[in-house]
Write a protein that binds this DNA or RNA. Structure first.
Length: 210
DNA sequence: ACATTAAGTGATT
DNA sequence: AATCACTTAATGT
């Protein structure tokens, strides 16, 4: 059941570490739309993605969401890395973007492995760095208030994590993810359609050229 | 046929 | 870019 995992992380970790993960890790399968982690919830384990994709969101006081980034196979959540340095409660919400398989590793192993395996340490630092870079990207796009560019980036990312140029979603859903209104999204999408970048139908967006 | 939900549009701030 | 008000179109019962 964990063959896929072993195959995928084979080149990243040494055998000894792989075996430890295999021993303490729990295989978890989630389906599209499932919430893996909510804001304020305590982090008990750290996820290692085998396949699929997870959407990482932030929420404001009114319950409006804002997407931070997606994580894919080979990625892990930066939030869990934080928690080992004191923070215990999650500041983010994680929702499965597609059906996803992951390995849950108890967080207490984190620190132990950090000093024991240099491949692990490298992996953690690398992921932390990657996630931070992605956050900078989204911060940039928000700060400079270019909704059209944010939307394009969102569609690109979404098509990528779904491994499909056809995105089945509504304008309203997108608006919620990007923390804006549906009307704005509809208009921008219309513009993109007119310049032949996408194709629009009900509950359907086909990415042609982004 | 009717109700519901998704999407398009003009006008205003 | 956000909001309102309204229309049109697609879909479910």
């Amino acid at each position: 059941m964990k063959e896929q995992f072993l195959k995928q992380y084979n080149y990243l970790f040494e055998d000894e570490l792989l075996q430890e993960i295999n021993k303490v890790g729990i295989l978890k399968t989630v389906s599209e739309g499932d919430m893996l982690m909510d804001i304020g919830q305590e982090l008990m384990a750290m996820p290692l993605l085998i396949n699929g994709a997870i959407k990482i969101l932030r929420e404001d006081e009114n319950g409006n969401e804002l997407i931070l980034y997606f994580i894919e196979q080979g990625d892990t959540c930066a939030m869990t890395i934080n928690c080992c340095m004191g923070q215990v409660k999650s500041k983010i919400r994680a929702v499965a973007e597609v059906d996803t398989q992951l390995i849950m590793v108890p967080i207490k192993k984190m620190g132990e492995w950090m000093s024991k395996y240099q491949t692990w340490q490298h992996f953690i630092l690398q992921s932390y760095h990657d996630r931070m870079m992605e956050m900078f990207e989204t911060i940039d796009s928000i700060a400079f208030l270019k909704m059209d560019e944010r939307l394009i980036k969102f569609l690109r990312d979404k098509a990528k994590v779904n491994h499909n140029d056809i995105i089945n979603t509504t304008h309203l859903d997108i608006a919620n993810d990007l923390h804006t209104s549906r009307v704005v999204i509809s208009r921008l999408l219309k513009k993109l359609e007119n310049s032949n970048k996408i194709e629009l139908q009900r509950n359907y967006i086909k990415v042609l050229d982004l």
